[in-house]
Design a binder for these strands. Structure first.
Length: 313
DNA sequence: CGAATTTGACCAGCGC
DNA sequence: GCGCTGGTCAAATTCG
């Protein structure tokens, strides 16, 4: 319906914004964008939103021969941004992202804070744990962003543990949409996973909210991801999604045109082997790669490399 | 036995 | 107001 419409629009816009960079600069391997509406763009970069606060230099240098998921149009949508994304799970070969529903305007002073929303989240049945939403108050949404991944598995490993709490059939799609919530009781992050009706091989994952805790990082069915040496210096859980790259080494990854941000959540162990946190010390639990001094350009800094920004300026 | 998943029901929001 | 769809709950079921 309308939500669907909106989502479609967002996705299109996302795809549109991506291509120029990805298609030309990295062979069109990745094609993604994030919807960070609702986030404070002026003070919080996308990576920060994700939990990537201190990212190291050139991030990735992944020889990814995989095909791209989406073709890339050209005019970047005004409100969507693009960010790298990577194959995450075994079988995933390529990724693309798309912004999704507008995370409702957190800018609107009249509307409650995301946190408030959590509390006020309407629970139909009275006595809900989550509280009761005030009447007439629109449901507030956390900033969201989505990305597409060409993968055989629906649920991509991102280092966090998720509990599935629902599944719904999606209109105009033969594939159901699954709803997951972070298993950390204090963490309200959610994510939706669905397959693209257009390309069944493509999994669309939409994250909503930010993790407020360190990631458990214990990739399913595998060796625990090499955790950064945090023991001596436990990093506080970043107010971001805190996506994880359980087992990849930043130096092994390099994306010339996207050196100031990291891609979202994904398990790189199947993309690049032998990967380890690139540097000890100041590392967050879920983003072993981290150290890139980031200037505050708001969302822009996360999306467009400085040299590109200069050109555009 | 606890945790995770499945699944039907219910509610909110939106367009008509 | 009605119908449709997305999103969430929670009981039942399955899994480890």
């Amino acid at each position: 319906m309308m939500m669907e419409k909106r989502e479609e629009e967002m996705e299109v816009a996302a795809a549109a914004g991506v291509s120029p960079f990805f298609a030309d600069q990295i062979g069109g391997i990745f094609d993604m964008a994030f919807d960070v509406r609702g986030a404070d763009k002026s003070s919080q970069g996308f990576l920060e939103l994700l939990g990537f606060h201190d990212l190291p230099g050139p991030l990735f240098d992944i020889p990814v021969p995989a095909p791209l998921v989406d073709a890339a149009p050209s005019v970047p949508p005004p409100e969507s941004s693009e960010v790298l994304n990577f194959p995450a799970t075994p079988n995933s070969s390529s990724i693309s992202s798309s912004s999704t529903e507008a995370a409702t305007d957190t800018a609107d002073p009249a509307k409650p804070h995301p946190e408030e929303e959590e509390l006020g989240k309407a629970k139909k049945t009275s006595g809900s744990k989550e509280g009761i939403k005030k009447k007439g108050q629109k449901r507030q949404r956390e900033p969201r962003f989505a990305f597409k991944t060409k993968s055989e598995v629906d649920h991509l490993e991102d280092g966090y543990r998720w509990r599935k709490y629902g599944q719904k059939a999606v209109k105009n799609s033969p594939f159901p949409r699954s709803y997951y919530r972070c298993t950390n009781a204090a963490c309200g992050v959610k994510k939706r996973v669905e397959r693209s009706s257009e390309d069944p091989a493509v999994v669309v994952t939409t994250y909503e909210g930010q993790h407020n805790h360190p990631c458990p990082v214990v990739p399913r069915g595998g060796h625990p991801a090499p955790q950064p040496p945090l023991a001596a210096e436990p990093a506080p859980p970043p107010p971001g999604l805190g996506f994880v790259f359980p087992s990849f080494q930043a130096k092994d990854l390099h994306f010339p045109y996207f050196t100031s941000y990291l891609p979202p959540p994904l398990d790189f162990q199947h993309v690049s082997t032998g990967i380890v946190a690139s540097a000890p010390g100041d590392r967050r639990p879920c983003n072993p790669t981290a150290d890139i001094p980031m200037r505050d350009h708001g969302l822009l800094q996360d999306l467009i490399p400085s040299d590109i920004r200069k050109k555009e300026e």
